[in-house]
Design a protein around this nucleic acid. Structure first.
Lengths: 195, 195
DNA sequence: AAGAAAAACAAACGACTGTTTGTTTTATAC
DNA sequence: GTATAAAACAAACAGTCGTTTGTTTTTCTT
Protein backbone atom coordinates (compact mmCIF):
# COMPACT_ATOMS: atom_id res chain seq x y z
CA UNK A 1 0.00 0.00 0.00
CA UNK A 2 1.02 3.60 0.56
CA UNK A 3 3.59 4.51 -2.14
CA UNK A 4 0.89 6.30 -4.05
CA UNK A 5 3.34 9.00 -5.06
CA UNK A 6 5.49 8.70 -8.11
CA UNK A 7 8.49 10.54 -9.48
CA UNK A 8 7.81 13.51 -11.76
CA UNK A 9 7.79 12.79 -15.45
CA UNK A 10 10.90 13.44 -17.46
CA UNK A 11 9.10 15.83 -19.79
CA UNK A 12 8.12 17.91 -16.79
CA UNK A 13 7.55 21.50 -17.77
CA UNK A 14 7.71 22.91 -14.28
CA UNK A 15 11.26 24.21 -14.66
CA UNK A 16 10.34 26.12 -17.80
CA UNK A 17 7.22 27.35 -16.11
CA UNK A 18 9.30 28.84 -13.32
CA UNK A 19 11.76 30.32 -15.80
CA UNK A 20 9.04 32.08 -17.76
CA UNK A 21 7.30 33.26 -14.60
CA UNK A 22 10.58 34.73 -13.36
CA UNK A 23 11.18 36.37 -16.71
CA UNK A 24 7.72 37.92 -16.85
CA UNK A 25 7.57 38.98 -13.21
CA UNK A 26 10.91 40.69 -13.69
CA UNK A 27 9.96 42.28 -16.98
CA UNK A 28 6.43 43.46 -16.19
CA UNK A 29 6.14 43.24 -12.44
CA UNK A 30 3.86 40.94 -10.48
CA UNK A 31 0.52 42.57 -11.17
CA UNK A 32 1.11 43.28 -14.83
CA UNK A 33 2.22 39.73 -15.60
CA UNK A 34 -0.86 37.55 -15.81
CA UNK A 35 -1.29 33.84 -15.41
CA UNK A 36 -2.24 33.78 -19.06
CA UNK A 37 1.02 35.49 -20.01
CA UNK A 38 3.04 32.90 -18.16
CA UNK A 39 1.05 29.98 -19.51
CA UNK A 40 1.33 31.26 -23.07
CA UNK A 41 5.09 31.69 -22.72
CA UNK A 42 5.43 28.06 -21.70
CA UNK A 43 2.94 26.93 -24.30
CA UNK A 44 0.27 25.62 -22.01
CA UNK A 45 -3.26 26.64 -21.11
CA UNK A 46 -3.90 28.97 -18.17
CA UNK A 47 -5.74 26.33 -16.18
CA UNK A 48 -2.92 23.82 -16.50
CA UNK A 49 -0.77 26.01 -14.37
CA UNK A 50 -2.91 25.18 -11.36
CA UNK A 51 -1.70 21.63 -11.41
CA UNK A 52 1.67 22.97 -10.28
CA UNK A 53 0.62 25.91 -8.11
CA UNK A 54 -2.46 26.55 -6.05
CA UNK A 55 -2.45 30.27 -6.75
CA UNK A 56 -0.58 33.08 -8.46
CA UNK A 57 0.89 34.08 -5.12
CA UNK A 58 2.29 30.60 -4.65
CA UNK A 59 3.93 30.83 -8.05
CA UNK A 60 5.55 34.09 -7.03
CA UNK A 61 6.75 32.60 -3.78
CA UNK A 62 8.32 29.71 -5.68
CA UNK A 63 10.15 32.15 -7.94
CA UNK A 64 11.23 34.13 -4.90
CA UNK A 65 12.57 31.02 -3.22
CA UNK A 66 14.62 30.13 -6.24
CA UNK A 67 15.78 33.74 -6.51
CA UNK A 68 17.00 33.81 -2.94
CA UNK A 69 18.72 30.49 -3.47
CA UNK A 70 20.53 31.66 -6.58
CA UNK A 71 21.62 35.03 -5.27
CA UNK A 72 22.69 33.52 -1.98
CA UNK A 73 24.81 31.00 -3.81
CA UNK A 74 26.39 33.74 -5.89
CA UNK A 75 27.29 35.73 -2.81
CA UNK A 76 28.61 32.71 -0.93
CA UNK A 77 30.77 31.64 -3.83
CA UNK A 78 32.10 35.14 -4.37
CA UNK A 79 32.99 35.74 -0.74
CA UNK A 80 34.55 32.33 -0.29
CA UNK A 81 37.44 33.45 -2.46
CA UNK A 82 38.39 36.25 -0.09
CA UNK A 83 39.74 36.35 3.44
CA UNK A 84 40.08 40.06 4.24
CA UNK A 85 36.74 41.24 5.74
CA UNK A 86 36.50 44.32 3.54
CA UNK A 87 37.34 42.32 0.45
CA UNK A 88 34.76 39.75 1.41
CA UNK A 89 32.12 42.43 1.73
CA UNK A 90 33.15 43.90 -1.58
CA UNK A 91 32.93 40.55 -3.31
CA UNK A 92 29.49 40.02 -1.80
CA UNK A 93 28.24 43.39 -2.97
CA UNK A 94 29.56 42.86 -6.46
CA UNK A 95 27.90 39.45 -6.70
CA UNK A 96 24.66 40.87 -5.33
CA UNK A 97 24.65 43.64 -7.85
CA UNK A 98 25.59 41.53 -10.83
CA UNK A 99 22.75 39.14 -10.13
CA UNK A 100 20.44 42.07 -9.57
CA UNK A 101 21.23 44.10 -12.62
CA UNK A 102 22.26 41.67 -15.25
CA UNK A 103 22.26 37.99 -15.18
CA UNK A 104 19.45 36.61 -13.12
CA UNK A 105 15.71 36.84 -13.63
CA UNK A 106 14.98 35.11 -10.35
CA UNK A 107 17.19 37.37 -8.28
CA UNK A 108 15.82 40.45 -9.97
CA UNK A 109 12.31 39.44 -9.00
CA UNK A 110 13.36 39.26 -5.35
CA UNK A 111 14.34 42.92 -5.41
CA UNK A 112 11.87 44.25 -7.93
CA UNK A 113 8.65 42.77 -6.60
CA UNK A 114 8.04 44.39 -3.24
CA UNK A 115 6.36 42.27 -0.55
CA UNK A 116 3.94 45.06 0.33
CA UNK A 117 2.57 44.92 -3.20
CA UNK A 118 1.42 41.33 -2.71
CA UNK A 119 -0.42 41.34 0.63
CA UNK A 120 -1.36 37.67 0.57
CA UNK A 121 2.26 36.59 0.20
CA UNK A 122 3.85 39.45 2.07
CA UNK A 123 5.00 37.61 5.17
CA UNK A 124 6.46 34.74 3.20
CA UNK A 125 8.33 37.04 0.86
CA UNK A 126 9.69 39.08 3.73
CA UNK A 127 10.98 35.99 5.47
CA UNK A 128 12.85 34.98 2.34
CA UNK A 129 14.38 38.42 1.94
CA UNK A 130 15.43 38.54 5.56
CA UNK A 131 17.10 35.17 5.32
CA UNK A 132 19.16 36.43 2.43
CA UNK A 133 20.10 39.68 4.10
CA UNK A 134 21.53 37.75 6.99
CA UNK A 135 24.49 36.95 4.75
CA UNK A 136 25.31 40.64 4.77
CA UNK A 137 24.72 40.96 8.48
CA UNK A 138 27.49 38.40 8.88
CA UNK A 139 29.83 40.02 6.38
CA UNK A 140 29.42 43.33 8.18
CA UNK A 141 29.79 41.76 11.60
CA UNK A 142 33.26 40.63 10.57
CA UNK A 143 34.42 44.12 9.65
CA UNK A 144 36.92 45.88 11.91
CA UNK A 145 35.08 49.15 12.52
CA UNK A 146 35.65 52.21 14.69
CA UNK A 147 33.78 52.11 17.97
CA UNK A 148 30.28 53.54 17.85
CA UNK A 149 29.49 52.55 14.28
CA UNK A 150 26.01 51.08 14.02
CA UNK A 151 26.37 47.94 11.95
CA UNK A 152 22.66 47.58 11.40
CA UNK A 153 22.44 50.96 9.74
CA UNK A 154 25.51 50.20 7.73
CA UNK A 155 23.74 47.17 6.32
CA UNK A 156 20.52 49.05 5.68
CA UNK A 157 22.34 51.85 3.93
CA UNK A 158 24.50 49.63 1.78
CA UNK A 159 21.80 47.21 0.71
CA UNK A 160 19.30 50.02 0.21
CA UNK A 161 21.66 51.87 -2.09
CA UNK A 162 22.47 48.68 -4.00
CA UNK A 163 18.87 47.56 -4.35
CA UNK A 164 17.65 50.96 -5.45
CA UNK A 165 20.11 50.88 -8.32
CA UNK A 166 17.54 48.82 -10.24
CA UNK A 167 15.72 52.12 -10.64
CA UNK A 168 18.47 54.03 -12.39
CA UNK A 169 20.85 51.48 -13.83
CA UNK A 170 21.16 51.29 -17.57
CA UNK A 171 23.14 48.61 -19.33
CA UNK A 172 26.21 49.91 -21.06
CA UNK A 173 27.36 52.53 -18.62
CA UNK A 174 29.18 51.61 -15.46
CA UNK A 175 29.31 47.93 -14.65
CA UNK A 176 27.77 46.46 -11.51
CA UNK A 177 31.27 45.86 -10.24
CA UNK A 178 32.19 49.51 -10.61
CA UNK A 179 29.01 50.63 -8.90
CA UNK A 180 29.48 48.37 -5.90
CA UNK A 181 33.07 49.51 -5.49
CA UNK A 182 32.19 53.17 -5.71
CA UNK A 183 29.55 52.79 -3.03
CA UNK A 184 31.93 50.98 -0.72
CA UNK A 185 34.61 53.57 -1.30
CA UNK A 186 32.23 56.29 -0.17
CA UNK A 187 31.80 54.46 3.10
CA UNK A 188 35.46 53.74 3.61
CA UNK A 189 36.83 57.24 3.22
CA UNK A 190 35.85 60.21 5.33
CA UNK A 191 33.91 62.76 3.34
CA UNK A 192 34.12 65.38 6.05
CA UNK A 193 37.14 67.41 6.91
CA UNK A 194 40.03 67.50 4.47
CA UNK A 195 39.08 69.49 1.43
CA UNK B 1 -17.22 86.48 -27.79
CA UNK B 2 -14.63 83.83 -26.98
CA UNK B 3 -14.58 83.61 -23.17
CA UNK B 4 -16.26 80.24 -23.37
CA UNK B 5 -14.33 79.00 -20.35
CA UNK B 6 -15.55 79.59 -16.85
CA UNK B 7 -14.00 79.27 -13.41
CA UNK B 8 -14.33 75.93 -11.61
CA UNK B 9 -17.25 75.62 -9.25
CA UNK B 10 -16.72 76.22 -5.56
CA UNK B 11 -17.96 72.77 -4.66
CA UNK B 12 -15.30 71.27 -6.87
CA UNK B 13 -14.38 67.78 -5.72
CA UNK B 14 -11.15 67.54 -7.65
CA UNK B 15 -8.97 68.25 -4.60
CA UNK B 16 -10.60 65.47 -2.64
CA UNK B 17 -10.33 63.21 -5.66
CA UNK B 18 -6.59 63.77 -5.74
CA UNK B 19 -6.31 63.25 -1.99
CA UNK B 20 -8.07 59.92 -2.11
CA UNK B 21 -6.13 58.82 -5.16
CA UNK B 22 -2.88 59.63 -3.37
CA UNK B 23 -4.04 57.79 -0.27
CA UNK B 24 -5.01 54.67 -2.21
CA UNK B 25 -2.00 54.62 -4.53
CA UNK B 26 0.19 54.88 -1.47
CA UNK B 27 -1.72 52.27 0.50
CA UNK B 28 -2.30 49.64 -2.18
CA UNK B 29 0.04 50.59 -4.99
CA UNK B 30 -0.92 51.74 -8.45
CA UNK B 31 -2.18 48.50 -9.92
CA UNK B 32 -4.08 47.31 -6.87
CA UNK B 33 -5.95 50.60 -6.44
CA UNK B 34 -8.74 50.70 -8.98
CA UNK B 35 -10.63 53.61 -10.45
CA UNK B 36 -13.65 52.29 -8.64
CA UNK B 37 -11.80 52.36 -5.32
CA UNK B 38 -10.88 55.99 -5.81
CA UNK B 39 -14.33 56.99 -6.99
CA UNK B 40 -16.00 55.23 -4.06
CA UNK B 41 -13.68 56.94 -1.59
CA UNK B 42 -14.70 60.33 -2.95
CA UNK B 43 -18.33 59.31 -3.17
CA UNK B 44 -18.73 59.54 -6.91
CA UNK B 45 -19.31 57.09 -9.71
CA UNK B 46 -16.38 55.55 -11.59
CA UNK B 47 -17.28 57.24 -14.85
CA UNK B 48 -17.44 60.69 -13.28
CA UNK B 49 -13.73 60.55 -12.71
CA UNK B 50 -13.15 60.83 -16.43
CA UNK B 51 -14.45 64.35 -16.42
CA UNK B 52 -11.29 65.28 -14.52
CA UNK B 53 -8.77 62.87 -16.01
CA UNK B 54 -8.52 61.22 -19.37
CA UNK B 55 -7.05 58.02 -17.98
CA UNK B 56 -5.84 56.30 -14.84
CA UNK B 57 -2.27 57.06 -15.83
CA UNK B 58 -3.09 60.75 -16.04
CA UNK B 59 -4.52 60.61 -12.55
CA UNK B 60 -1.30 59.05 -11.32
CA UNK B 61 0.76 61.70 -13.05
CA UNK B 62 -1.31 64.41 -11.38
CA UNK B 63 -0.68 62.84 -7.98
CA UNK B 64 2.99 62.53 -8.82
CA UNK B 65 3.18 66.17 -9.79
CA UNK B 66 1.63 67.25 -6.54
CA UNK B 67 3.90 64.85 -4.67
CA UNK B 68 7.02 66.30 -6.22
CA UNK B 69 5.77 69.81 -5.49
CA UNK B 70 5.13 69.04 -1.84
CA UNK B 71 8.34 67.17 -1.16
CA UNK B 72 10.33 69.79 -3.02
CA UNK B 73 8.78 72.51 -0.92
CA UNK B 74 9.54 70.60 2.26
CA UNK B 75 13.18 70.21 1.28
CA UNK B 76 13.55 73.81 0.17
CA UNK B 77 12.03 75.14 3.37
CA UNK B 78 14.16 72.87 5.54
CA UNK B 79 17.43 73.71 3.81
CA UNK B 80 16.70 77.43 3.77
CA UNK B 81 17.21 77.51 7.50
CA UNK B 82 20.81 76.33 7.25
CA UNK B 83 23.96 77.80 5.81
CA UNK B 84 26.64 75.17 6.40
CA UNK B 85 26.67 72.81 3.39
CA UNK B 86 26.64 69.64 5.46
CA UNK B 87 23.87 70.95 7.67
CA UNK B 88 21.92 71.91 4.58
CA UNK B 89 22.24 68.41 3.18
CA UNK B 90 21.24 66.94 6.52
CA UNK B 91 18.16 69.13 6.72
CA UNK B 92 17.22 68.14 3.18
CA UNK B 93 17.59 64.44 3.93
CA UNK B 94 15.53 64.72 7.09
CA UNK B 95 12.75 66.55 5.27
CA UNK B 96 12.87 64.03 2.44
CA UNK B 97 12.58 61.13 4.83
CA UNK B 98 9.84 62.62 6.98
CA UNK B 99 7.68 63.24 3.95
CA UNK B 100 8.48 59.79 2.68
CA UNK B 101 7.82 57.79 5.80
CA UNK B 102 5.23 59.66 7.71
CA UNK B 103 3.33 62.68 6.75
CA UNK B 104 2.64 62.82 3.07
CA UNK B 105 0.58 60.54 0.86
CA UNK B 106 1.60 62.38 -2.28
CA UNK B 107 5.31 62.21 -1.59
CA UNK B 108 5.07 58.55 -0.64
CA UNK B 109 3.49 57.78 -3.98
CA UNK B 110 6.45 59.36 -5.76
CA UNK B 111 8.81 56.87 -4.14
CA UNK B 112 6.54 53.87 -3.81
CA UNK B 113 5.11 53.73 -7.33
CA UNK B 114 7.99 52.91 -9.60
CA UNK B 115 7.93 54.40 -13.10
CA UNK B 116 8.80 51.08 -14.71
CA UNK B 117 5.61 49.60 -13.29
CA UNK B 118 3.50 52.03 -15.31
CA UNK B 119 4.91 51.88 -18.84
CA UNK B 120 2.47 54.34 -20.36
CA UNK B 121 3.42 57.04 -17.88
CA UNK B 122 7.00 56.01 -17.33
CA UNK B 123 8.74 58.86 -19.09
CA UNK B 124 6.58 61.50 -17.44
CA UNK B 125 7.10 60.03 -13.99
CA UNK B 126 10.83 59.79 -14.50
CA UNK B 127 11.04 63.41 -15.56
CA UNK B 128 9.26 64.47 -12.39
CA UNK B 129 11.55 62.39 -10.22
CA UNK B 130 14.63 63.70 -11.90
CA UNK B 131 13.52 67.27 -11.42
CA UNK B 132 13.18 66.62 -7.71
CA UNK B 133 16.53 64.89 -7.40
CA UNK B 134 18.21 67.91 -8.84
CA UNK B 135 17.68 69.57 -5.49
CA UNK B 136 20.05 67.02 -4.02
CA UNK B 137 22.49 67.35 -6.86
CA UNK B 138 22.78 70.99 -5.84
CA UNK B 139 23.07 70.29 -2.14
CA UNK B 140 25.85 67.83 -2.82
CA UNK B 141 27.57 70.15 -5.28
CA UNK B 142 27.97 72.65 -2.45
CA UNK B 143 29.77 70.20 -0.17
CA UNK B 144 33.49 70.63 0.45
CA UNK B 145 34.72 67.17 -0.44
CA UNK B 146 38.12 65.50 -0.76
CA UNK B 147 39.41 65.39 -4.31
CA UNK B 148 38.35 62.37 -6.30
CA UNK B 149 34.98 61.87 -4.66
CA UNK B 150 32.32 61.15 -7.25
CA UNK B 151 29.40 63.39 -6.38
CA UNK B 152 26.99 61.60 -8.65
CA UNK B 153 27.54 58.32 -6.85
CA UNK B 154 27.26 60.08 -3.54
CA UNK B 155 23.80 61.26 -4.54
CA UNK B 156 22.78 57.87 -5.89
CA UNK B 157 23.94 56.12 -2.75
CA UNK B 158 22.34 58.54 -0.34
CA UNK B 159 18.98 58.82 -2.09
CA UNK B 160 18.91 55.09 -2.78
CA UNK B 161 19.43 54.28 0.86
CA UNK B 162 16.82 56.83 1.94
CA UNK B 163 14.23 55.74 -0.60
CA UNK B 164 14.66 52.07 0.13
CA UNK B 165 13.83 52.75 3.78
CA UNK B 166 10.15 52.60 2.79
CA UNK B 167 10.73 48.86 2.61
CA UNK B 168 11.89 48.30 6.16
CA UNK B 169 10.72 51.29 8.18
CA UNK B 170 8.17 50.68 10.88
CA UNK B 171 6.52 53.48 12.77
CA UNK B 172 7.51 53.61 16.39
CA UNK B 173 11.16 52.69 16.17
CA UNK B 174 13.75 55.19 15.06
CA UNK B 175 12.42 58.44 13.72
CA UNK B 176 13.07 59.58 10.15
CA UNK B 177 15.35 62.25 11.57
CA UNK B 178 17.46 59.68 13.35
CA UNK B 179 17.68 57.49 10.28
CA UNK B 180 18.80 60.32 8.03
CA UNK B 181 21.45 61.39 10.50
CA UNK B 182 22.80 57.89 10.94
CA UNK B 183 23.16 57.47 7.19
CA UNK B 184 24.96 60.76 6.84
CA UNK B 185 27.26 59.93 9.72
CA UNK B 186 28.30 56.73 7.97
CA UNK B 187 29.38 58.80 4.99
CA UNK B 188 31.15 61.45 7.02
CA UNK B 189 33.41 59.22 9.08
CA UNK B 190 35.95 56.81 7.70
CA UNK B 191 34.96 53.21 8.33
CA UNK B 192 38.31 51.90 7.28
CA UNK B 193 41.47 52.05 9.28
CA UNK B 194 41.25 52.99 12.94
CA UNK B 195 39.71 50.15 14.90
C1' DA C 1 0.29 -5.21 -22.03
C1' DA C 2 -2.23 -3.19 -18.10
C1' DG C 3 -2.95 -0.18 -14.44
C1' DA C 4 -1.87 4.14 -12.16
C1' DA C 5 -0.41 8.46 -11.59
C1' DA C 6 1.25 12.84 -13.74
C1' DA C 7 0.18 16.43 -16.60
C1' DA C 8 -2.27 18.90 -19.60
C1' DC C 9 -6.62 20.12 -22.19
C1' DA C 10 -11.15 22.37 -22.94
C1' DA C 11 -14.34 25.30 -21.44
C1' DA C 12 -16.27 27.96 -18.65
C1' DC C 13 -17.33 30.89 -14.09
C1' DG C 14 -18.02 35.13 -11.80
C1' DA C 15 -15.84 39.06 -10.61
C1' DC C 16 -13.41 42.97 -11.79
C1' DT C 17 -10.89 46.16 -15.07
C1' DG C 18 -10.47 50.87 -17.41
C1' DT C 19 -13.42 53.40 -20.17
C1' DT C 20 -17.40 55.44 -23.10
C1' DT C 21 -21.83 57.31 -23.98
C1' DG C 22 -25.91 59.93 -23.41
C1' DT C 23 -28.42 62.35 -20.02
C1' DT C 24 -29.34 65.02 -15.96
C1' DT C 25 -28.33 67.97 -12.16
C1' DT C 26 -26.33 72.16 -10.28
C1' DA C 27 -23.83 76.27 -9.52
C1' DT C 28 -22.53 80.44 -11.78
C1' DA C 29 -22.66 84.61 -14.85
C1' DC C 30 -25.29 88.02 -17.23
C1' DG D 1 -34.64 84.52 -14.21
C1' DT D 2 -32.52 82.48 -17.83
C1' DA D 3 -28.70 80.78 -20.55
C1' DT D 4 -24.40 78.28 -19.98
C1' DA D 5 -20.90 75.64 -18.69
C1' DA D 6 -19.23 72.52 -14.88
C1' DA D 7 -19.83 68.32 -12.88
C1' DA D 8 -21.83 64.32 -11.92
C1' DC D 9 -25.13 60.42 -12.84
C1' DA D 10 -26.69 55.98 -14.93
C1' DA D 11 -25.72 52.33 -17.46
C1' DA D 12 -23.34 49.82 -20.06
C1' DC D 13 -19.17 48.03 -23.11
C1' DA D 14 -15.63 44.95 -24.18
C1' DG D 15 -12.00 42.89 -22.25
C1' DT D 16 -9.18 40.72 -18.67
C1' DC D 17 -8.45 38.65 -14.34
C1' DG D 18 -7.51 34.45 -11.24
C1' DT D 19 -9.60 30.23 -10.80
C1' DT D 20 -12.50 25.75 -11.07
C1' DT D 21 -14.28 21.62 -13.03
C1' DG D 22 -14.52 17.51 -15.63
C1' DT D 23 -12.14 15.02 -19.09
C1' DT D 24 -8.43 13.40 -21.84
C1' DT D 25 -3.75 12.43 -23.01
C1' DT D 26 0.77 10.84 -21.86
C1' DT D 27 4.38 8.82 -19.38
C1' DC D 28 6.01 5.69 -16.01
C1' DT D 29 5.82 1.35 -13.34
C1' DT D 30 5.23 -3.35 -12.92
Amino acid sequence: MSSIARAPRSDNRLPRLLDEAARLFRQKGYHAASIRDVAAAVGMLPGSLYYHFASKEDLLVAVYEEGVRQISDAVVVATAGQSDPWRRLEAGCVAHLEALLRLNDYAQVVIRVLPRDVPKARSRLTLLRDAYERLFTDLIAALPLPAGVDRRYLRLMLLGALNWSQNWYHEGKDTPKTIARRFLKLLQVSLRGEE
